[in-house]
Design a binder for these strands. Structure first.
Lengths: 137, 137
DNA sequence: CCCCTCGTGAAACTCTCCGTAAAAGTTGAT
DNA sequence: ATCAACTTTTACGGAGAGTTTCACGAGGGG
């Protein structure tokens, strides 16, 4: 159960966009790719999904680029994961067998706890943290 | 981010073994496969992993079969996921980019919350619940 | 010895993830 | 109007993981 590189990329880029939030010019793909170490051609797809999901806006043309579409404190980890990976911790197969229901219910409880935790963490918090010392828990 | 069919199968079978815990005879693969709707040939592999991980024990020969190796209240969802899927919510790629550390730290917090929740739910609880009415939260 | 059961490895299949590339569309500047 | 820069769209393909099935080997009991 590992979280995909894609959602990690998406989070990093969104944090970067948060840091650029007050800026006059829009952010370019090449710029974002360099700052966050994401393959530019892959980033194209991710930005497209983020745009369709309403998290960012884009402008075409010579002075085009990307910017956040919402306030940083209104975008949580949950929004990002839900958009990129779909439902969180969804059950793969069908609910079958004598213990299927019982196990499914347990996972639903875990999923709820996970979602609540993800909703607590917003882009605003992540951007502020950047550059701080890292202490391992 | 969906949890694999394999870990679902493992949980169901372990709950079933919990229900058989006091029994005289050991549980057969065919029996478990039928009761929990798991492909028998696939179940062999899963049981093998559970055995190597110390959660169950097995005996070959005419009166062979499987049984729990621990007390049901000492086996949690966390133990099962950790054994079958490896680390929970581990980060796929490397920690890179300006925001890499910040995002990684956020995910570590989420992972901790998830692990704590998984540790709370034991096989004993899951076996008791079976057959109860299901209420959606 | 023979049957019954688990044990192990590998092949095949599907599917998603990750990354690349080329073509098409849009905007602003000259 | 035309060109150049930039984004968007679309398609493709390798790599790897998850799921399933099969075949054969190993061990224990009657």
């Amino acid at each position: 159960m590992k979280l995909s590189v894609k959602v990690d990329y998406a989070c990093r880029v969104l944090v970067q966009l948060t840091r650029m939030h007050g800026r006059a010019e829009l952010a370019h793909i090449e710029e974002l790719a360099r700052l966050e170490a994401v393959p530019a051609n892959y980033l194209v797809q991710i930005l497209s999904e983020l745009r369709n999901g309403g998290l960012i806006m884009s402008r075409r043309g010579k002075q085009g680029g990307y910017a956040l579409a919402k306030r940083p404190e209104d975008v949580s980890l949950y929004d990002i994961v839900k958009l990129i990976e779909g439902d969180v911790l969804e059950l793969g197969g069908a609910i079958e067998g004598q213990s299927g229901k019982s196990v499914a219910r347990a996972w639903r409880e875990v999923r709820t706890a996970l979602e609540e935790k993800c909703r607590e963490i917003t882009l605003a918090q992540l951007a502020v943290r950047t550059g701080e010392e890292m202490y391992y828990i």
